[in-house]
Design a protein around this nucleic acid. Structure first.
Lengths: 102, 102
DNA sequence: TATACATTTCGATAAAAAGCGATATAGATA
DNA sequence: TATCTATATCGCTTTTTATCGAAATGTATA
């Protein structure tokens, strides 16, 4: 982190309002995903996010995949669930990199 | 500057490598556009940028238009030329806004 | 006014991204 | 093993963005 091709992937990932919205929700999971049965420390499981976006399950899954490939979120599988949380280190590194390059 | 719809336009504008490249060139016009016959204080005229992108004149014009609509560059017409320069205030405002929202 | 030059706009095509339902995969549980 | 739940992947269609050449616009100049 964070070279030019990574910046490219990140900016493209951010260039969609739903993906930015997901990142914003994940900033305060207790506020947006309080109904999740599992501990929020793991992250938020994909199905919870589906519910909020209003998009289909497969479309939301694709958005999450884009965020993950860009390194903006990280995942952890526990049982049948996959938890998503922000990758704060990468987000911070990106902000610094774009602050310099822009 | 800089509300949510403006951020959206800016991020979309940045989500193309050629447009980021143009912004980078405009950071150091004397380095990249020294052959311009007119003073660089005005900015860099569109034709000079065309030459560098390797894309067609009309495509480059569309990229410049995207950057301008997003507020990342400003233009000034002098005679038959239209000069482009970075809008540093807006760029800075964007960096601060995204640093907070992200 | 006619012509030349710089740039934008138009019309069309191609490529990329978004979206959906259906299917596949993987783990949990009866 | 059979079935249920959660998520990812596939195949397809629609929408958006990128790209080009040609035409239009606007300015300068002979």
């Amino acid at each position: 982190m964070t070279d030019s091709s990574e910046i490219d992937a990140i900016i493209k990932a951010l260039a969609h309002p739903v993906r930015r919205q997901i990142l914003a929700w994940l900033k305060e999971p207790e506020e947006w995903f309080a109904e999740q049965a599992h501990p929020l420390d793991y992250g938020v499981c994909a199905g919870m996010i589906d519910k909020r976006t209003g998009l289909s399950q497969s479309t939301t899954s694709a958005h999450l995949s884009t965020l993950q490939k860009a390194g903006l979120v990280e995942t952890q599988r526990i049982g049948q669930w996959i938890y998503y949380k922000r990758n704060e280190a990468n987000i911070q590194a990106f902000l610094e990199a774009i602050g310099e390059s822009l």
